[in-house]
């Protein structure tokens, strides 16, 4: 096993793979500290683009809109997707189950342009019929994002629930918990990691989305990807590099924070066990 995994060929491949993944990001971070305006010429170290970034009202506004939309989307999609996943696993075989599951997963494979266009048509038709949503903005983007991210959450929750031992919830009921309480106290905490990853995935998908947002957005609701995309067309500003660097930093902090939190929980538990064992020894 060892000799195979340490072969020079594989190490080279690994290095190449990582370089392919991370070199562009490293370059981007490096050039965000570039004094020069030109993206390809190194003109010395500077943080001036960061200063400029924080004075750019358009980018800051778009970032706020994007983060708001992503947070609301992720929360709604997690709630609705969990319900859908639950129905798929728990309700057994009901009439139209295949259709239901097909309709839930369809947005995963639907071209974004189609999704975006159809949602735009829906909004326009609705506005004419009932006057809501009046115009397009944060609300419409959020609704559009919920419809397509919900499918991902449903799939994640469904696969987690299928693995779950059904007798767990039965045991809770056997011990006196009503069905709703058994779900809240036992099933929900067990599938919580799936909900967290579903939430994070929906958040990222929403933050990342350009196509569907472009269809659903109004004149005063430009999201971050839309700003970046349109500004890049006019020539890359190192400001965008600075923005990207901050996003990478944010993601890294979240990942490290989560890992640290989990590690600390494990350590605390191990300590508690060790303490209890020591106490037991003392008593004997």
């Amino acid at each position: 096993m060892k000799s195979v995994s340490r072969s020079p060929f594989l190490i080279t491949m690994l290095a190449f793979g990582f370089a392919f993944l991370y070199l562009p990001i490293l370059l981007l971070i490096l050039y965000s500290f570039n004094e020069s305006r030109l993206v390809t010429v190194w003109g010395g170290f500077s943080v001036k683009w960061y200063a400029e970034l924080f004075q750019d009202a358009q980018i800051l506004g778009a970032a706020k809109i994007s983060l708001t939309v992503a947070a609301i989307t992720a929360t709604l999609a997690t709630a609705l997707g969990t319900l859908a996943g639950l129905v798929l696993v728990r309700f057994g075989r009901f009439r139209g189950r295949t259709l239901f599951s097909g309709m839930i997963t369809a947005p995963l494979v639907m071209p974004e342009v189609v999704t975006g266009l159809s949602i735009l048509l829906l909004f326009v038709a609705l506005e004419q019929l009932i006057g809501w949503p009046a115009g397009r903005g944060v609300t419409t983007i959020t609704i559009a994002h919920v419809t397509f991210t919900m499918a991902y959450v449903a799939i994640i929750v469904q696969s987690r629930l299928t693995q779950l031992d059904g007798s767990m919830e039965e045991a809770a009921m056997d011990l006196g918990a009503r069905p709703a309480k058994a779900f809240l106290l036992v099933t929900l905490p067990i599938i919580a990691p799936a909900l967290v990853s579903g939430w994070l995935l929906a958040f990222t998908l929403s933050l990342d989305d350009l196509v569907i947002a472009s269809f659903a957005a109004g004149p005063d609701s430009t999201t971050l990807p839309m700003v970046v995309f349109s500004s890049v067309r006019l020539g890359v500003s190192p400001k965008i590099n600075a923005l990207a660097t901050l996003l990478v930093l944010g993601a890294t902090i979240i990942i490290i924070g989560a890992a640290w939190f989990m590690h600390r929980q494990d350590r605390d538990r191990d300590r508690a066990v060790a303490r209890a064992m020591a106490e037991q020894k003392d008593r004997e």
């Binding site: 031992d165 007798s167 767990m168 039965e170 045991a171 056997d174 036992v186 067990i190």
Partner: peptide, 13 residues
Amino acid sequence: VNMMFQSYALFPH
């Protein structure tokens, strides 16, 4: 009545 399950069904969390 209370039941002891074949798989024990202990709450893992």
